[in-house]
Design a protein around this nucleic acid. Structure first.
Lengths: 233, 233, 233, 233
DNA sequence: CATGAATGAGCTTTCATTCAT
DNA sequence: GATGAATGAAAGCTCATTCAT
């Protein structure tokens, strides 16, 4: 039987560790919930599973989030809008022609968002927006608006430089946006379960889209697309 | 005592009346189901609620549809797949140039599907496909495949007539599809709850899209869009 | 359009036929119910199926029987106890030795009851007796008692003739009864669904049983069993 | 502030108390289920009622048993199949002559199974086997097969020792089985509701059966039955 | 704070029974 | 009488949420 002292020390260590983890709990839960919501959707994700993946008990989840809806809200809030400064900076600084900038933009989006689980958030928001109007508004404001503004600036750059003809900005933005959102939605719906033999290859799809769009936007045939442009560096 | 004829006629009338009611039930239930599925999603719609909205009891629903999934399939068949013959016929018979045919196609889609609650089904399937794989497969087969085939034929028509340049059909189809699905999804997600001040006007959006796409597809500037083309007649 | 007279005559014929059938309805329903109850048990038999097999509608069934329980009672009441006079007469008249009479009795039972759907009634009563005490009492009185009495007389015949040793009649009867009821129950329970590779052959089983019993009952080794005794003629 | 040791001990006690309750749940539920299944049959017993009788809620039942069928299997395992090792051991170890072993076997069966509510399970399975084929197969495999094997070994022992004449094992087993199953079925059907004045006394019935059977099996008159053999010690 | 046993409202589906026709 | 469309009470099972420990 161990001495009291020893026990006490162990208890202190445990407590310290627990308190350290305590602060991390909400983040761990939110991370687990993100994964699961993206994998299975909101309704099909069981609270207990989120807790288990976060390494805590079901009860603990409800200690930090009043309800499953609450958890969903936290997931969305935690996972967006933080990266806009970086993106904005990158595209403002771009030196090449605007057609290439548009190409870069969509590739970058695929690399950073579309191809990661973050695209699941978009799809999730689409699915659940009508059930969480307040959240949808938040998403609109924090994600969609800034994204649209960035696209608008890129298009305007092309118009100003004379590369593009005149554009009705209101819809021009959606011209760029639609293929991306379509891809995010598709990937997490039909892309995962059917569509097997004729599967959409996202990079190819985006390439074709962007060339068609550029062909439509440009005053003259757009500069040829770069054969191999590195994205991530 | 009434004459036999009289009795016979009464019986016929009675049967007629009852059968008229019986015949109407499935349609009423399908209509109610469409509304509710679009409002709340498939999983969140309770069978009893559908019944109530159709003015019958829970049991009656299952008298006509073996299961909730079955009811959903009926909704899809009644509202989408069943109408392909009509759509196919219409577009096969079209006499004008292919650019106008593409324009007509998208306007028609908006009039028949996008602008009605039927577009909610598309959004619904996107949201719930991964949770109901069997439904997703059904939808893929009954809706997406035929729709894609129709688009493919339209594009091929333009290529064959020399109006369009060469098209990678695999992605060409999605070029047309994406704006429509985007619109359907958007309308039933952010479109309903936020987006208020800068609301997307679908007809305008589709017009812009189709012109951009045509500009991208056509060998030479496409024929001017008709200023006012009637859709529904 | 047919003349009124013609219609009237048809109607009259139909009515006549209907009235003729009307009297037969309960019997037809009971017959259908017997089959189905034996096939599937009481709870698993659906009222509508009984009606369909009897060629009438669900509503009609409830016109003649107040409830499914009521129908069950009728089934049991209609299908028993009528054949005892014939059986009693046959066995009273038997001229051979008692060992052979016992053999004949069990073979006859198998031919008339065990091997027909009537044995399903026994099994049914066993299963449902505790839910229908009044019916169980009726069955006890109308079926079990007369059957036991018959067996008792047969055994007594053997004792009186000196073929059998002394028998405690109270249990001697069950010595004969048990294999028969066991067989009826087994046949309609495990006999139908498992037991496949080692299936009980009823005639063989009864033969073995009766010889063992006779060996136990007889003062000296019983007469050899007849090699081939025809039962059904 | 209590010492660490004290806290540790309290925690241990708490956990112990809760786990004691948790450990007891399955047994309580199985006991309640046994009662109700025997009283009302498998299909007619509602899961909620079992829970209520065990003093828990519906949900709790499904915390411990995945389905109603699962619960039934647990009832069978807990009360029958689980006891075969004990029974087998007991009869393998028996030293006396085989006639006495057969007598002991049937008395023991009566004491452990027939006379308790467990015999209701046998009757239940007979009644519901055809409606629940999977349960029937389970029962066949877990109960009937091992039971038959035990009987077979006992009979073989008598044949090997020269006490019994040659036996067709296939039916010899049923010779022993039939009176027991008959008794179980009878007791839970007609035995409970009628049969009052001429009630079967099970021990006597079994005695008579076993002596008749032994008389039939043995080469020479079997050893006299012990006048008073203790069963349970 | 953390746990996880316990809860019970809620869901789809079935089917005996009713009753307008 | 006869019909069969309509009903709604159950039933098995799930899972977000609670709360004693």
């Amino acid at each position: 039987m161990p001495s009291p002292i020893c026990l006490f020390e162990i208890a202190a260590t445990v407590r310290a560790k627990r308190e350290r983890r305590k602060d991390a709990r909400p983040a761990e839960l939110v991370a687990a919930a993100l994964e699961l919501f993206v994998e299975k959707g909101f309704a099909a994700t069981r609270a207990e599973e989120v807790a288990k993946r976060a390494g805590v008990s079901k009860g603990t989840l409800f200690l930090y989030f009043a309800s499953k809806e609450d958890l969903f809200k936290a997931v969305v809030r935690e996972n967006i809008s933080g990266r806009y400064p970086e993106w904005n900076a990158r595209f403002e600084a771009y030196q090449g022609n605007t057609a290439d900038l548009v190409r870069l933009f969509m590739r970058q989006w695929w690399a950073d968002v579309g191809n990661s689980s973050i695209s699941g958030i978009s799809k999730l928001m689409m699915s659940e927006a009508s059930n969480f109007p307040e959240l949808a508004a938040f998403y609109q404001q924090e994600v969609i608006e800034p994204g649209s503004a960035l696209i608008r600036r890129i298009l305007q750059r092309g118009v100003d430089s004379g590369e593009f003809g005149p554009i009705d900005m209101k819809y021009g933005v959606y011209t760029i946006l639609a293929p991306m959102l379509f891809l995010a939605t598709w990937k997490h719906s039909f892309g995962t379960c059917c569509d097997a033999n004729n599967r959409l290859v996202p990079e190819e799809y985006l390439s074709v889209q962007v060339e068609t769009i550029l062909h439509g936007l440009c005053r003259r045939p757009p500069s040829l697309p770069p054969t191999q442009e590195t994205i991530t560096s």
